[in-house]
């Protein structure tokens, strides 16, 4: 009786698991089907005659290497920027006493509640003035800091006992050295997990890049994919799915390697 009940509770969870995964599985499968087969055998999970035609067509239509590089380059700059500014700020909040500390901290946290629509017009104008339209640098520039990172790093730093720092300060060891030689090594796991999250989010980013990148040569992967979806005369789904499959490889690899770290850092970002 009891075990039967237990199985019943698993049912909704298994359904949710399928809803989470099946779309992706179908997407990958369809990317190896011809357009005709994708219409004729919609529910076939395994293509009858697997083909890589969609991938070769894609390779002719867009510069895949360029797209991947643009996306990778942008995501790397954004990730490094957010990590550096976040670590420095968290260090200040943890180890210094200064005026208006709680107010400044709340101001940083409050930035999470600023809708992008309120900053997009002025920021667009600034990036245009700086002649950075159609450049991934222009996309990255306004995004080099992130309050979530500060919150998570601060939480991890709170686990390092204050006594350690007090003794280092008595020995007059400069903050610069404490920061680089002691704090950063201890924080390595959370730097990896937060960095992985930043990278994946930036890799997937769509809204702000659509405003800045208008020239196809400057496109990132999500923008190129959008072009396939809204193309005239309906979407060629196998083709769009091939591009999507290419897009999800890197985030999946990062997740497979750092899965435990990533899930932990999400937990940390919510714990108050």
């Amino acid at each position: 009786m009891n075990s039967k009940k237990n199985v019943l509770w698993h049912l909704p969870l298994i359904i949710i698991g399928l809803v989470a995964l099946l779309p992706v599985v179908f997407m990958i499968s369809n990317s190896f089907k011809t357009l005709q087969e994708s219409y004729q055998s919609i529910l076939n999970l395994i293509p009858t005659k697997p083909t890589i035609d969609n991938y070769t067509t894609l390779n002719h239509q867009v510069n895949l290497i360029r797209l991947i590089w643009n996306t990778f380059f942008m995501a790397t700059i954004v990730t490094l920027g957010k990590l550096l500014t976040g670590l420095l700020a968290a260090y200040a909040f943890r180890y210094f006493q200064f005026k208006h500390k709680s107010f400044i901290y709340l101001l940083f946290v409050a930035t999470i509640f600023v809708p992008f629509t309120i900053v997009m017009i002025p920021n667009y104008l600034v990036i245009a003035k700086l002649n950075l339209l159609n450049s991934v640098i222009g996309v990255a520039l306004p995004q080099l800091c992130d309050a979530t990172g500060i919150m998570i790093f601060l939480k991890t730093m709170e686990k390092i006992p204050s006594s350690l720092f007090d003794s280092l300060k008595i020995d007059d060891i400069p903050n610069r050295r404490i920061f680089f030689n002691i704090v950063l090594p201890i924080l390595r796991p959370s730097i990896i997990s937060v960095g992985a999250m930043f990278f994946i989010n930036s890799w997937n980013e769509y809204v702000w890049p659509t405003l800045i990148l208008k020239d196809k040569g400057s496109f990132t992967l999500p923008l190129a994919l959008q072009n396939y979806i809204s193309s005239e005369g309906g979407t060629n789904f196998p083709l769009a799915m091939a591009l999507s499959s290419i897009m999800i490889v890197l985030p999946l690899i990062i997740y497979l390697i750092f899965q435990r770290y990533i899930l932990n850092s999400i937990s940390n970002s919510g714990l108050k």
Partner: peptide
Amino acid sequence: FFIPSLFSLVV
């Protein structure tokens, strides 16, 4: 459950 969070909303 977390896996779809890895993918772009465009996907």
